[in-house]
Design a protein around this nucleic acid. Structure first.
Lengths: 223, 223
DNA sequence: AGGTTATTTATACACTTGCACAACAAGGCC
DNA sequence: GGCCTTGTTGTGCAAGTGTATAAATAACCT
């Protein structure tokens, strides 16, 4: 119970620190993603987001024109991070195309890309992409970038195997491999505990190699 | 402009018809799915749903304890319909296992299963499955039922090909094929206009046959 | 140190939301 | 027909929403 000699003023205004604009915007975007992942789009209110970011709700309007723009920027940041992580697995200079492809599949089917929180965000935003052109565009850009990466690696792999696929064949392979990775990614995110560690990656590599008509290699089997 | 001799009473209460309980509940569930697909979970308010169902908002509480239960029943109905449609493609008595598998893939990669509205619903609800155990359970049941169907057909196909896979091998095939279908389904729903008719099904069949190590058949190529 | 700026808080407001409840009427039963 | 059940409407309400804006104050400049 408060003492009569309580030294604190009764209506003390909250202490705060001024952060740089970049930092605050990033914090708010992160808080937005956290809130959406945990409570969904309906539960991600400005007050919830502000609470998680450690500020008050009014501040959001100082950095974003409105809630919609905040959500769009958050989704753009999410998509960018996802594709960036995925493509990072491809930068292995001193590796054969096949090794790079296998590493790509493995990276996409393990943490941190297999992640329930990211999946929740992905699904939540994508559910609104049908009605929100801005979200649809953000997704489309990320998806096409991803598929182009796949197609490039596939072309290298087939070239190394003395295959010379035409454009249509290459495209079909890229679409199928993209589907394999996406589908396994979803299964892993939604029911990760149903698979032993590395199992999804092993399934994915075998499926991709079968799609490309490659004989299995030993070195990328589950160790 | 209303005439001074307007015969209608000014505060006329709305005319209505009494529908059977089954019909009303189904109409409300359908209106809920429509609203969620079009406006998302946040936009699917009781008033929006009631408007689309042709009733007033208060009536919803006469059939459902609250909004949450309505949403859960709607999602359950959606999942049930999806898996039912998918499995319906498998009931071809006088067909070889391989034909049935190909027909299954084809059915899942064309309308009405490839559908932007259904995808929007699927993603929207699944985004909340991470936080809502009831939704997670509804999804899990549908998914496992689907995968078991796949596994059964795969077993028949391999048996017809004189293969005798062990349980682990069979499970891996089912997981991979399920991923292929899911991944292509998503691509088709999100960017259907990027694919020519039948293209996704052709890609899917080829990928599935490659996964199972089957030599391609002519009769299920794109015609 | 003192003045200035613009970041941050706090409050207010119009509006929507899910839910509760009383009034009403549609359709079956006698 | 008249009554009775209950499906259905309309209204009200408290809580919560996004947005607007004034007041406060942390940090920078000289």
């Amino acid at each position: 119970m408060p003492d009569a000699t309580d030294p604190a003023p009764m209506n003390a205004r909250r202490k705060f620190r001024r952060e740089g604009e970049g930092r605050r915007r990033q914090d708010l975007i992160e808080a937005t993603l956290d809130s959406v992942a945990e409570y969904g789009l309906q539960g991600a209110t400005l007050r919830t987001i502000a609470l998680r970011a450690g500020v008050t709700a009014g501040l959001i309007r100082h950095y974003f024109p409105g809630k919609e723009e905040l959500l769009q920027e958050a989704y753009t940041a999410l998509v960018g991070r996802m594709t960036e992580q995925a493509k990072a697995a491809l930068v292995m200079d001193d590796a054969s195309p096949r090794q790079r492809l296998a590493a790509f599949v493995t990276a996409n089917l393990n943490a941190p890309i297999i992640d329930a929180r990211v999946f929740s965000l992905w699904a939540t935003f994508l559910g609104r992409a049908g009605a929100d052109p801005a979200l649809a565009r953000a997704h489309r850009d990320g998806y096409l970038g991803f598929r182009n990466e796949v197609e490039a690696v596939v072309a290298e792999v087939l070239a190394a195997e003395q295959h010379k696929p035409d454009a249509g064949e290459l495209r079909h392979h890229a679409i199928a491999i993209n589907a394999i990775i996406d589908g396994l990614w979803i299964e892993g995110c939604l029911a990760g505990e149903m698979f032993s560690p590395g199992e999804l990656a092993a399934i994915g590599i075998k499926a991709v190699e079968a799609e490309l008509g490659l004989a299995p290699l030993k070195q990328f089997q589950e160790k």
